[in-house]
């Protein structure tokens, strides 16, 4: 059972730090809304299990002027891919 974890709050809310403790093999992370600021703060990321894919919602990076400084661990995706990722994983866990 894999999960897509969505992070929508800025690094100050530390949702990624909590989420990282509970990741299983095959889980992925999607940064969106203010969660995209994690990309600018990659030095402070918690350790993620090897092979964890990190995606970022392109629209939110562009809106915030971050699209040219995307961390190399982050793969930008659009809404169409966001929907596909929700289908490819067994559930979506939103860290509100």
């Amino acid at each position: 059972m894999t999960s897509l974890h969505t992070i929508t709050k800025p690094p100050s809310a530390a949702a990624l730090q909590s989420c990282a403790k509970f990741l299983s093999e095959g889980d992925s992370i999607l940064l969106l809304e203010d969660g995209v600021y994690y990309s600018a703060d990659a030095n402070n990321w918690p350790a993620l299990p090897l092979g964890t894919k990190v995606y970022g919602l392109k629209e939110d990076f562009v809106a915030r002027g971050l699209s040219k400084i995307v961390d190399r661990q982050v793969e930008l995706v659009d809404y169409a891919r966001f929907v596909q990722l929700s289908c490819e994983h067994d559930k979506v866990v939103s860290w509100l």
């Binding site: 059972m1 999960s3 403790k21 509970f22 990741l23 299983s24 559930k91 866990v93 860290w95 509100l96």
Partner: peptide
């Protein structure tokens, strides 16, 4: 907790 998340159909984080 990881096990709870894995075996649940629906996870709500609030």
């Amino acid at each position: 907790i990881k096990k709870f998340i894995n075996q649940s159909k629906f996870v709500l984080t609030l």
